[in-house]
């Protein structure tokens, strides 16, 4: 007998969407993090200040509030501004885009911190060596700095991924049919909420455990050039 009363396919499709949202948001977060981290080293004070404000605000505001602000607040804000200028616009955000944008924006701040401290962990002599060997800045970054950046940033980025994965559940609140939303619908239809939410929890747990295992291997792979005990 099927314990999920034929609703298993709903959970599976929701699970797929959850993974899709999580992976897209992680890519977005790393890109935003890279840009923000490089700006933090910029010599122009005002842009440094803006990035500093961005990471400070993101750390102090709940994900749910930011999500609601982007999904419900942003369209009305744009409508208000356009209305003041004499234009009539109707704007509705797609929950999929709003969700990925918000999560990328939030976890970009955390990825920024991870990448910044990884960059600072690279010994100064490496930069000098790049110049001494006549590498161009781009070649030096791609072949010398980036691989080490990856090694130093992996533990922190792994944590960002684990937290981000769990945060995707929030997007169910703006009606995106990901795992939590599908589970909620199936739970209501079958009147077996405990069974369904437990299955959903176990699905998240499974991805978390696989990710932790994968992270261990990635970290080993990224530091294969390092002789243990020599650092």
């Amino acid at each position: 007998m099927d314990p999920l009363s034929g609703y298993g396919w709903m959970l599976i499709s929701g699970f797929g969407l959850t993974l899709g949202v999580a992976i897209s948001s992680m890519i977005g977060a790393i890109l935003i993090g890279l840009i923000a981290a490089s700006i933090k080293f910029s010599r122009i004070k005002i842009v440094r200040l803006i990035v500093g404000l961005y990471t400070t605000v993101i750390r102090g505001v709940p994900e749910l509030v930011l999500l609601l602000l982007v999904y419900y607040g942003l369209p009305t804000l744009i409508q208000d501004i356009a209305g003041n200028m004499g234009y009539q616009v109707r704007l509705n955000l797609n929950p999929f885009i709003a969700g990925i944008a918000t999560l990328s924006f939030i976890y970009g701040a955390f990825a920024c911190e991870a990448l910044r401290s990884a960059y600072l962990a690279i010994p100064k002599g490496q930069h000098e060596t790049i110049i001494a060997f006549g590498f161009s800045r781009l070649r030096g970054f791609v072949w010398i700095i980036a691989p080490q950046l990856l090694r130093y940033a992996l533990p922190a980025l792994g944590n960002v991924w684990l937290v981000l994965l769990k945060a995707t559940a929030l997007i169910s609140i703006i009606q995106l049919p990901e795992l939590m939303r599908m589970t909620d619908m199936a739970a209501r239809a079958t009147r077996q909420p405990f069974t369904f939410f437990l299955v959903a929890c176990l699905a998240y747990l499974l991805v978390t455990l696989i990710s932790m295992w994968g992270q261990k291997y990635l970290e080993q792979w990224a530091s294969k050039g390092i002789v243990r005990g020599a650092v």
Partner: peptide, 23 residues
């Protein structure tokens, strides 16, 4: 510890609040 750290708080909240109805 693994269960509560590895699953979303929202899912835990639904598991308790809605899940209790099943019992």
């Amino acid at each position: 510890v693994t269960f509560f750290r590895g699953t979303p708080l929202l899912a835990q909240l639904f598991l308790v609040y809605y899940g209790a109805g099943q019992f």
